[in-house]
Amino acid sequence: MKRYWQVWKRLAVMAFLMQFTNRWSSLGWLGGKFVRLAFFILFIVSIFRHVPSVAGYSLEAVALFFLTFNLVDIIAQILIRGIYMVGRDIREGDMDFYLIQPVNALFRVCSNLVDFLDFLMLIPVVGLILWVFPRILAGYSGEALLMNGLLYVLLCANGLVIAFSIHVLVAALTLRTQQMEETIWMYRDLVNLGRFPVDIYTPFLQVILTFVFPIAVMVSYPSKALLGLLSPQKIVLAFALSAALLAVALESWKRALKHYSSVSS
């Protein structure tokens, strides 16, 4: 465990060094991410100057959904960014090095590109969440405060597990077919549907976003729990869903590795 922590830290340092060598480019990527965040917040704040609520949610609630979406997405990106490179790792033979070294290959693939820029993105997001929190929690009793707050944190972690599982599934697919790596970019697009509360979508789409492609569970459920809008059944569903997805993802990865080890390259 300690060794893994050391390796992860080292990989993070190396990723940082790499981004620092290309500092202008990195600054541009960072700037782009800030621009996007700023414009969306501007949009959300501006729209509430014209309407009192959206789908029954106040400005603070819509902002909470948007910020929580960013929080889960950014942390997921920090932890598993390397998976986006898995296609290249296979083509260039880096995968073979990961497999012969005494470090879990999936861990290595995930941590190979710890995106330092995303650490910086966390600052405004966390800052704004801290600004929104007291405004939402103002009327809560101490007990509800503790309960909903705890659920929020747990469901955010649960969202990370879902994000991780989806990425591992795509990585397994890539390892298997050696060409499906673009699928992961589809994920990047679809996950953007989680910026707004999922209640705005048609019931059919909501079902899809819950069960087929569980973006709702991943980024909307934590906020709903905090607002006290999530039934106990749905909370159970959220954890069951991520557990099942994780199991399927890890099994697919194992099988894909086995397949990789039996084909010529």
Binding site: V7, K9, L11
Partner: peptide, 8 residues
């Protein structure tokens, strides 16, 4: 250094 960490 990475390999130092990997191989302890």
């Amino acid at each position: 250094v990475l390999n130092q960490k990997i191989f302890e």
